[in-house]
Simulated assay, not measured.
Amino acid sequence: MTSEQVPVAATRKGAYWQTACTLAVLLAAVWLAHRHWPVLETGALRLAAADQGWLLTGATAACGTWLCAALALQGAVVRRLPPGRLVAAQFAASAANHLLPAGLGAGAVNLRFLMRRGLPAGRAATAVGVKATAGGMARGALIAVLAAACPGILRVPHDGGGWAVAGVAAVGVCVLLAGRLWPRGRRILAGVTADIRAVHARPRRAAALWGGSVAFAALHACVLIAVTRAVALPLPPARVALLYLAASSAAALLPTPGGLGSLDAVLVLALAAAGAPAAAAASAVLGYRLLTVWLPLLPGLLVLGVLVRREAL
């Protein structure tokens, strides 16, 4: 084989691989839609008589979550990322997140996207971890604020605080031991710390990271609030937001793709326990899922396939 034939063969092999990935994500979308078709059909029928203005408001908030996710990822890295492809990658990541459990889909897409932008694997993984950590902390801060504004909604066991402190302390001890006893662990920890400091040394990056993380969680809550208004669910918006943030945090502990099933059940129970009629609570959760999962799923997977074919992922 000549030197000119080698690049041609490599190009063909890459094209075959990209085509296979595109077909795989399309087949996955069809399979998911077929498997959950009763959910889609029931939700559409229940929401047909809902207030269309509120549903449009919820759809707008859902679109804003992708912009906030892109803003948070840009804040997690020092290097400037192309805005258009960054938003497209977050749209694709939101769809991939419903194919793999515990946020692995979105993490894999973001990791690949950053590596394609020239970041080493270690720094790309650190950025994805920083973004995820900021998102969790932002969600916790919103829960704390809303819990103070809506006392009596969330009930923590008497010994829950002690267990939480013990867990945080155990994680901290493990990190310190790994850093001191394992030389490679010290180097990795030093690199991660340096990357975090570099990001927070730039006020714009820090503001993008934390502002995008807070806005991402808040807009998801706004989607559910808008749907509850559309189906005339009799709960105050602040209470709905608090219940959503608490339920989604609890459902994140269960390794289901995109929280499908786990979040739905927990959220319906939470809304019903807060005083909403069971049928209205179920309809609100179905509407939230339609706006955040089912309607954007196929377009998101198509964008994922396009990004793979164009070697952006």
Rank of each mutant, 00 (worst) to 15 (best):
V77R: 11
L81P: 02
W294M: 06
W182D: 00
R239L: 11
P236V: 09
H98K: 13
L26K: 00
A276Q: 01
R204Y: 02
G129W: 15
R289C: 03
Q5K: 07
A61T: 02
L86P: 08
L47N: 07
G58D: 07
L224Q: 05
V78A: 11
A48N: 08
Y244E: 04
L295E: 13
D195V: 07
T11P: 06
A138N: 06
A141I: 04
R197M: 13
P157T: 04
A134V: 10
V128L: 04
L47Q: 14
V78Q: 14
A218Y: 12
M115A: 13
P82E: 11
H34C: 08
A226D: 10
L114W: 07
A272H: 14
L260K: 11
P82W: 09
G162Q: 08
L224P: 05
L271K: 14
H220C: 13
V168K: 09
P299D: 02
G105L: 05
G136C: 08
A108S: 06
K131V: 06
G64M: 06
A274D: 01
A241F: 06
A96Q: 04
G118R: 00
S3D: 13
L224M: 11
T2Q: 13
R202C: 11
Q74A: 15
L260N: 12
A127W: 00
A106M: 04
R310F: 13
D159V: 14
T19Y: 15
S283R: 05
L56E: 15
L209T: 01
G162N: 10
M115W: 00
L235Y: 06
G103A: 13
A274C: 03
P203N: 08
A273C: 06
R139H: 04
G259P: 01
A95L: 00
V266Y: 06
L253Q: 12
W210G: 14
G261D: 03
I225W: 01
T65W: 00
G167P: 02
S249G: 12
A69N: 09
L304Q: 01
Q52W: 12
A252G: 08
M1H: 11
L245Q: 03
A89I: 05
G84I: 10
A147K: 04
R309H: 12
V39K: 14
R229P: 13
S3P: 15
P257A: 10
M1Y: 10
V266A: 04
R197N: 13
S213L: 14
K13T: 11
A127P: 07
L298Y: 03
A270V: 14
W66C: 09
R180K: 07
V168H: 10
L154A: 04
G160P: 07
A265D: 05
C68P: 00
L47D: 14
P101Y: 10
G84A: 07
L26W: 00
P151C: 03
V240R: 01
H98V: 12
Q5D: 15
L181V: 02
W182A: 04
A280W: 06
T57S: 09
V128E: 04
P234H: 02
F216Y: 11
A10D: 08
L71C: 08
G103E: 03
A265T: 11
P236W: 06
F91K: 14
Q52I: 10
A72D: 12
A279R: 15
P234K: 01
A281F: 02
L176K: 02
A251D: 11
V192R: 15
T133C: 14
L313M: 07
L45A: 15
G122W: 02
L243T: 00
G275P: 13
L189W: 11
G305M: 01
R186P: 01
T65E: 13
L304V: 03
C174L: 15
V285L: 10
Q5M: 07
